[in-house]
Design a protein around this nucleic acid. Structure first.
Lengths: 341, 341
DNA sequence: TACATAATTGAAAGCGCTTTGGATGCCACT
DNA sequence: AGTGGCATCCAAAGCGCTTTCAATTATGTA
């Protein structure tokens, strides 16, 4: 069943049927009803390829999937994708996923853009001074960045969470509980969120005249293993930190294992706050000691970015260019007053 | 730059240029060279939408992304996708990803198929007696199943690993080491791979006149947390098992935590073999006690399935309909002789 | 009542590609 | 010279949709 057949069936022209379907105002409401009814009865579905050809819109958003060892199959990627997908499916949009080595990001993104089968780009894993921004700006294709790029003029469309604020608040909470010896378990140093989280911690500490020692900071891939290693290192320090800030619940997993192995009690000897992306795999509330977290749903961010991207392609109203989401600080049992030595 | 312009530039017809580009035999080699040269110089790229319209091929493969809580953002999904993507990008194929609730799988798959923007379907998370198979067969669209469906006639195209063989071999190894008390930590009961792995263990044990007690079997989502819980339960049994088979390295993570917490030594008091999907997040060789595993790369499976799917759409030679991959049994330090009581 | 205006609808021209159904010229062979 | 067979190439017809431009009818207005 195609447009022609449908229009013949209705005794209308293809033009009118097309307009009725696409919500054009110049078609009689009664006619539109009739068309809609016929669509329901016949099960007619417009041919995507033809629509694309005629409109020049592909109905898809492109994204690069980093694929080097370590970056590979990031737990967060799937969750984010679920968010994008949730929105995309409502608009009959789909994804063009291009796998690429992180070193090839700029080129991969350009290839994707000129490939002609995407209408918009989604960009993630932002770094400080990210080289992709300049390329994106030159591209004349809508895009939204997830995160930001520290050190670059913030004149590009993005959605980010307030990483600095989150870790500032978390640090303040621990300070109020009396802690003075802090450690930060962070993601890879070049990534934007890691930079901002570090800044948040540092500025909260600075207000009390405290500083974050180099030895009390780790930058690593956010895996269980790395969390364990980093925590073991912290625990070996002569002045053992009592307050740990952790960029991911995945890292926290390993970290807590180290704490337990050392015979220490979480929430008593050691307080820990982790950032929670709301991964269904790892619920902070069901840890043996429920985790205090800064929370922001990765999936919700995916939904919102898809909205903006698709909305822009469909020219459906203006969207804010920059959005900064606050995180929630949720206190559970992994934080407690500093132990009396 | 489009076909028309390119052909005018060359003083050829669109027909000839099109054929030269698509490898048709009836075009003079010299002409073809000339065309190829011009393509290089002008940077001409065929318009995908037009090709799709003309050929009726969308150049994409569709997949459903399960999205219910728990199933959500499965670690394995991303890794598998990386494999699919790796192959797809070589052929300028992309994915249409449709998120759907697992309860809605059949309908979602049908919607995807009739949406008209996919040429082939990829289906995963197979269950015993999977209801999707009948629907797929009625669809007249190529598809490949990852895994199989226990209890259904195996007359559909699939790629699976020999789950039964893997766990049979693993069990045999442990038997040879003298173990007699076994436990199996498995994935969700309804999933095909879980059924087959259980069968593998049972049949190896049966050869020695042993059986797998109900209490020594757990079926759960493959998360760290569930691994911990299951192992804690096993360790509380009066006749504590000494040999553990584990359906995932993620489960093993939690399981090992429980072992450590109980003050037992992995590879000495308790032997454990886990199935390793080669997730970059979790390398069995870098566990504190390196893990003995049955290994099969999920990513490689993704690549292969994409090959078959794309090859079928492009009608590039016949592909085997059924493939069963052997797994590797890799012995590391988490297995040892049964402790002398 | 006559005419401008608004409300509906249609015919037809693309969008850029593939492919069918011939052309054309050239050669070898009767 | 006449014929059939090849090797090349092309004109033109779609693929199924959107959209421009124009036609038709209904509605007001003077």
């Amino acid at each position: 069943m195609n447009l022609k057949q449908l229009s013949e069936l209705l005794g209308l022209s293809q033009t009118t049927v097309s307009r009725a379907l696409n919500g054009y105002p110049e078609v009689n409401e009664a006619t539109r009803e009739r068309v809609l009814q016929a669509v329901k009865e016949t099960g007619y579905r417009p041919n995507k390829a033809a629509q694309r050809l005629a409109t020049g819109k592909a109905g898809s958003i492109g994204l690069v999937m980093p694929t080097a060892p370590g970056h590979q199959s990031d737990v967060h990627f799937g969750e984010f994708l679920a968010g994008l997908g949730e929105e995309a499916v409502r608009h009959d949009f789909h994804f063009v996923i291009m796998p690429a080595d992180p070193d090839d990001e700029v080129a991969a993104l350009r290839r994707l853009a000129i490939s002609g089968n995407v209408d918009a780009l989604f960009v993630a894993y932002m770094r400080g001074h990210d080289p992709r921004l300049a390329m994106l700006k030159s591209l004349s294709m809508p895009y939204v960045v997830h995160g930001r790029s520290f050190g670059s003029e913030p004149d590009y469309p993005y959605l980010d969470i307030d990483n600095e604020g989150a870790f500032y608040d978390a640090t303040r909470l621990l300070l109020q509980l009396g802690h003075t010896r802090f450690a930060l378990m962070n993601g890879p140093m070049h990534l934007d969120f890691a930079i901002r989280r570090k800044n948040g911690v540092i500025s909260a500490l600075a207000e009390r005249g405290l500083a974050l020692d180099e030895g009390c900071m780790s930058h690593a891939l956010m895996t269980d293993e790395q969390g364990l290693l980093a925590m073991e290192q912290f625990l070996r320090l002569p002045e053992r930190p009592t307050a740990i800030l952790c960029s991911s619940t995945v890292l926290a997993l390993g970290a807590i294992r180290a704490v337990n192995q050392a015979g220490l009690r979480l929430g008593e000897d050691i307080s820990l706050i982790a950032h929670d992306d709301v991964l269904p795999l790892l619920k902070p509330e069901s840890f043996s000691v429920p985790l205090t977290t800064t929370r922001s749903s990765l999936r919700a961010a995916g939904v919102r970015i898809a909205q903006r991207l698709i909305g822009t392609v469909k020219q459906a109203g203006p969207f804010p260019d920059q959005e900064l989401w606050k995180t929630e600080l949720i206190v559970r049992a992994s934080t407690g007053p500093v132990p009396q030595a």
